[in-house]
Design a protein around this nucleic acid. Sequence first.
DNA 1: CATGAATGAGTATTCATTCAT
DNA 2: CATGAATGAATACTCATTCAT
Lengths: 216, 216, 216, 216
Amino acid sequence: MSSKATPPQPRNKPLKRPTQARAKVTVQAIFDTYVRIWQRDGWERVTTRAVALEAGVAVGTLYDYFPSKQALHSGYVRHCIERLLAAVQVQAVEPAGLSWQARVTRLVHLLGGVAEEAAWFHPQMLELEPVIAEAKHQQRAYNELLQAWRRVLEAASDLPAMPSDAQLEALHLMVWGARRYALLVELPPQRLQAVVAAQLDSCLRLLAGPGEISDG
Amino acid sequence: MSSKATPPQPRNKPLKRPTQARAKVTVQAIFDTYVRIWQRDGWERVTTRAVALEAGVAVGTLYDYFPSKQALHSGYVRHCIERLLAAVQVQAVEPAGLSWQARVTRLVHLLGGVAEEAAWFHPQMLELEPVIAEAKHQQRAYNELLQAWRRVLEAASDLPAMPSDAQLEALHLMVWGARRYALLVELPPQRLQAVVAAQLDSCLRLLAGPGEISDG
Amino acid sequence: MSSKATPPQPRNKPLKRPTQARAKVTVQAIFDTYVRIWQRDGWERVTTRAVALEAGVAVGTLYDYFPSKQALHSGYVRHCIERLLAAVQVQAVEPAGLSWQARVTRLVHLLGGVAEEAAWFHPQMLELEPVIAEAKHQQRAYNELLQAWRRVLEAASDLPAMPSDAQLEALHLMVWGARRYALLVELPPQRLQAVVAAQLDSCLRLLAGPGEISDG
Amino acid sequence: MSSKATPPQPRNKPLKRPTQARAKVTVQAIFDTYVRIWQRDGWERVTTRAVALEAGVAVGTLYDYFPSKQALHSGYVRHCIERLLAAVQVQAVEPAGLSWQARVTRLVHLLGGVAEEAAWFHPQMLELEPVIAEAKHQQRAYNELLQAWRRVLEAASDLPAMPSDAQLEALHLMVWGARRYALLVELPPQRLQAVVAAQLDSCLRLLAGPGEISDG
DNA sequence: CATGAATGAGTATTCATTCAT
DNA sequence: CATGAATGAATACTCATTCAT
């Protein structure tokens, strides 16, 4: 009888799912434009209108697939992490018959190479992620990558001893965290290369066994 | 209707330098409020108006000290990094007569402890920094911390061999980057502790000497 | 990116007339959904898309029958008023041989009961009508209902004296306006009932004849 | 440590209260413009931007005093009802020594005259009120006006008999509701005048006493 | 000097309407 | 002939910044 209306609640689901081929193209164009604007003009210039227009669609179309700017960002990050994990999972164990050192070296380079591989891993984006979204994406990636390390090492039958969980985490944190930090401070490629070599050396030593450290 | 303000034209210079004691107190209050609001209410709530009001000054006064929001942020980060570097520089070399291992251990813990030490090093803030400002602060901190490592190791007369520049950088990147990354993924304290131990072990090995790594 | 629609240029005529039986069903479904959404979710949620989808047709189909949202609303209100007037006209004169008091009582209750009778007379809707459409529907209903009063009273041969036009209008305005206002302020049923009784009493007196009013 | 931020909740209090004289002028200008645009251009054209600009202030200034469009509307309606009630309360009892008939006549004309008195009582606005806001304003006005009737009648010592509560409500509903409805259907002034006379007559009879109604 | 009222460009988001399929 | 993907003008609201008092 009176104005008992359900309170307006923001949409949280996309109106449409990109089922048709045409729609998939649209979504991909939006993702591409999203990251392009970010990199070219900075975060402040990433507006839904700008993304939509530069992607060649109307704002309304963007909102057909992403119910909010936040959802666009989350969707993009999920998309990226999916690709990252897929790449790691496939390549990490692939060529059989490698020494464990070779395997680890491959993985370190694979993880490191991720940055140059594509714009979708621009460090600024991941840096900002926890601020504008939640840490869950990062945490998922962290755990998945930890598993990747484990699988690589388990596949290496000649490894002297499987590292402890803590060692594994240390390994991953050092390799991945150092890489992220290097991108952040924009370490020149040459220095980066040298650093990666030193880092790899360190990893191999850690995995090679206890060794002897003289503690005077 | 009354005062028609000309459209915002950002100034280039701060109008005042905090030369007087009273001014320093004001600036400190602004800094404190800045980080307090950030932590309590999130980045979205950090507005110049909110900061000024909660700091007990008028918005205009805030703008007397900081010509823009950007300048406020930069000023705050500079302030933090100054304190960080001061702490490192003082403590790193202080107690003479330590073994190099002890020195390195001290430094690693010092760097690691920095995050829990105080709010002025809130990780979210540094994560966001490159997005809303430039990378220069991070770069300066990076270089200064690299010097800290060098000084610590140079002060250790019993160190077998001074590491190469690349090794030094690798060392720092791993320690610092891993720590940042651990904060990002919110690694539980217990696991963090184990990881730090493993990491420290790795650092000590690296510095202990070339060792032998059998590369099949 | 695909179909660039020209900016909305409202058409002037409905493209189809619901001549076929199937079309009438569709129109009825749209009307039903229109009012259902309004009542359930409030005016803000009444969007053409929502109406069409919930009615089980495509938006485009809705626009085949109604050239604009405005037209949909107007069509619905016309539909309602048609039904209201039909009900009044049929019932008002029907049982012959009633006293004029009984006739008036019947009409008052009929008019009053209209609100509780069905959703198609939701008061909010009529309240909003003049805002989003024109007053013409209300005016037409007003005039028709005035005629209903006249017919009822003309059919009552035992009525002492036919009231003047002004009296007739006063009668209707009081009965109908009071009812609308009562709905607006959500008068509780019990109080409403008492009020209706008093009101009816007043009507009967007015019609009974001049009476005597001592005006000091 | 992480992004535990209080969720952004829309402001519900004005940032400023119009304490200074200048501010009061501003608020009044906003109110005037609000109703002017509504009447001149219709509800659809009432946008916060339009109101602010035509009132000669910036949008931000409007939002300094009204935290939302809803609040602006509510504030305006409250403002109007306040004025209405003040007028009624003052004038209803004022000239002592009047007959009860004269008092009632005065009140009826006072209530009726309200519409011509000022734009702030435009019927469309009150019609829309329950849709975009809550019924509470209307209910408050209803109750206050009921009290006005009671006071007026209590002040009339020569009134034959105090009407029952139901009769009082019926009286007010008829007078006020009829007037609202007459405005809605845009009854021409001449007919309105005649109707008011008939209505007044009816009221006086109702109050004069039981009378005799022959019910055949 | 400090103040805080006023500014207004800019943001995310909605929804009536069209038309290619 | 129905469909629903795409359109984009328009809206409420924010907040860094200024300057008259």
